[in-house]
């Protein structure tokens, strides 16, 4: 068996099983309503019910083909500028996620560097960093939106702030560990060269911490997409995948919700891919190891 097949076969097997289970579940979940909506004079029997279950306008559980065709419809039958085009909505969410992630990355690294270099900060700030993540984001998001809105920040800024708030945490935790990971011998070596603090950071702590940055970044990416969607919910549900998700749940448009979900996961996958590409390039520069 070819290598590619042995690698992808387990994945596709699971996908196949999930899809079968999905269609079975769609039948059971949609059947009560589908039967109620069926033309009393039309054909009856199992096959007619099955067909009805898989072709409802507002199914409880839409089938994968319905989700995909609705997505296709929204992308190809509406202009890119139309709010009904999912690509536009995904772009809004991507903008929020990437902006917030950049803020989280910059802030997370800066905070980690400060904590590693200052015992006072380590003692005083680290508990707050951990505490910050015990607050449910759903509770704090509307407050951030209102508070920032009051001082004139609307639109992207409050949403990016919420994403930054979520995504800085894994970066800080990972980088504190990474920046502290040089061993005594490596630090003594730098001391023997009379290296300055900045040199120790640039030539030793920073490069050593890369092995910790990338795993943290992957967690942060996943959080950033979740954060961006949550941040879109309380902003009056205007734009973004989160807004579509909310609108879909208001109007019982399950396909819209599933499409938003699908695009959100595609967005996260895309961002993860970028992180992995960065990791790959660094690894190659380092001869194959990080």
């Amino acid at each position: 068996m070819t290598k590619a097949l042995t690698k992808t076969l387990p994945f596709f097997t699971v996908m196949f099983v999930v899809i079968i289970a999905w269609y079975i579940a769609a039948y059971f979940l949609n059947a009560p309503q589908a039967v109620a909506l069926m033309d009393p004079d039309g054909p009856t029997g199992f096959w007619a019910v099955l067909q009805a279950c898989y072709s409802m306008d507002r199914p409880v559980l839409p089938t994968p083909d319905q989700i995909l065709s609705a997505l296709y419809d929204s992308i190809f039958h509406y202009p890119l500028t139309s709010p009904r085009n999912f690509l536009l909505q995904a772009a809004y969410t991507a903008q929020t996620a990437v902006t917030g992630l950049s803020i989280g990355l910059a802030f997370g690294i800066a905070l980690a560097a400060a904590i590693v270099h200052s015992r006072v900060l380590d003692r005083s700030v680290m508990p707050w960093v951990i505490g910050s993540q015990t607050i449910p984001i759903l509770a704090i998001a509307p407050m951030v939106v209102v508070a920032l809105g009051n001082i004139g920040f609307t639109g992207l800024a409050p949403k990016a702030a919420i994403v930054g708030y979520l995504s800085f945490f894994p970066i800080t935790v990972g980088m504190v560990k990474g920046l502290r990971s040089p061993d005594t011998m490596q630090l003594d070596l730098m001391r023997s060269y009379n290296a300055t603090g900045a040199q120790v950071f640039g030539k030793l702590r920073w490069p050593v911490s890369m092995a910790f940055l990338f795993p943290s970044l992957k967690v942060a990416v996943a959080l950033s997409v979740t954060g961006a969607i949550v941040a879109e919910l309380p902003t009056g549900a205007q734009v973004g995948l989160g807004a579509r998700l909310l609108a879909g749940s208001y109007y019982g448009q399950t396909m819209m919700m599933w499409d938003a979900l699908l695009l959100a996961s595609m967005l996260a996958l895309g961002l993860i891919f970028l992180v992995r590409a960065g990791e790959f390039l660094l690894r190659r520069q380092r001869g194959g190891r990080l």
């Binding site: 011998m185 003594d188 009379n194 030539k203 050593v208 890369m210 380092r286």
Partner: peptide, 17 residues
């Protein structure tokens, strides 16, 4: 920079050739 020091372990930086 009066001395060069060789440690018990090589203490090389693995990310540098």
């Amino acid at each position: 920079h009066a001395y060069g020091y060789v440690f018990q372990a090589p203490a090389l930086f693995p990310w540098r050739n």
